[in-house]
Design a protein around this nucleic acid. Sequence first.
DNA 1: ATTCTCACA
DNA 2: TGTGAGCA
Length: 120
Amino acid sequence: MRIGEMVRRTGVSERLLRYYEEQGLLTPTRLPSGYRVYTDADVDSVRRIRTLLAAGLPTATIAQVLPCIRDDGATLAPVCSDLVAQLRRERKRITDAIKDLQTSQGMLDTVIAAGPADTD
DNA sequence: ATTCTCACA
DNA sequence: TGTGAGCA
């Protein structure tokens, strides 16, 4: 499929799709016309890219991890052995981020509890 | 009608 | 990351 269908199927803009390619996250082939050609697997990749990006992983890391995730779920392929250590660091980063967010949440709770009307 | 590259109030 | 220009 070309970029137009990718936009419809992933909800991601053309701009971002091309940006992901620049970052090495997607490697669509080209038609003689220069048009990008994406595969069904690319649609799944975009979903993973978005999730990993939302988790705060740098595009460089995502580019390394993507080809190591198999269709069924989150199985690591052999070529990923050297990435385990890096993945552990990212995991810790997320753990620390959650801790900081909870601290912020606590501060907000204090302010909210001190005010008049309140919700959630 | 679509996609491409490049550039920037 | 959006937007628009100028092509193919």
